[in-house]
């Protein structure tokens, strides 16, 4: 039995945790295709402010989203230390700019606490739960909700 299947059977999930500013977020590891360093993107005209542009990912044109701006925080100023998480969202592939990848977590459903009532729409829309690990708070976000049919709503 493969590792992933065993985890599924036991109700475990694996998450990738990453840092944006002073906050930590995580996404399901199954949607992450690769993690790569930052390269300068070609900007797209008339794109939403959080779309940084497109880069060449081995021949495919990959849109890069500034996750910090997408989540309503201030816009990132990318440095060579920033990383891009390449993730599969539905049929599309999107690159997300984050400050650093911090951890790979294996959690069960019981570890995930519901999102507290907060006024911000953003959190209600994308946050699927929060995790308390080593006194840190990590917010689980749902990529499908973050990019509904990718950028169509904002184009």
């Amino acid at each position: 039995m493969s590792y992933a299947v065993k985890n599924l059977v036991q109700g475990n999930r694996e998450l990738i945790a990453f840092r944006i500013g002073d906050q930590e977020f995580c996404v399901n590891i199954m949607s992450v295709r690769e993690i790569r360093g930052w390269t300068k993107a070609t900007s797209l005209p008339h794109s939403p402010s959080y779309v940084m542009g497109v880069i060449n990912l081995r021949g495919a044109v990959l849109p890069i989203v500034d996750l910090s701006a997408r989540l309503g925080m201030r816009r990132a100023e990318p440095t060579p230390r920033h990383v891009i998480i390449v993730a599969q969202v539905k049929s599309r592939v999107v690159g997300m700019l984050v400050e650093a990848v911090s951890d790979i977590l294996t959690v069960t459903d019981e570890n995930i606490q519901p999102v507290p009532e907060v006024s911000s729409d953003l959190e209600k829309q994308y946050a699927r739960g929060i995790l308390a690990i080593d006194k840190r708070m990590i917010c689980l976000i749902e990529l499908d909700a973050l990019f509904p049919d990718t950028e169509s709503e904002a184009a």
Partner: peptide, 21 residues
């Protein structure tokens, strides 16, 4: 394929320096 139609832009290409144009 990975994004939406961009007004005023027909498609993209990759130039010799590896960047998207």
């Amino acid at each position: 394929a990975n994004y939406t139609h961009v007004p005023g832009i027909a498609a993209a290409t990759i130039l010799g320096d590896g960047r998207v144009a």
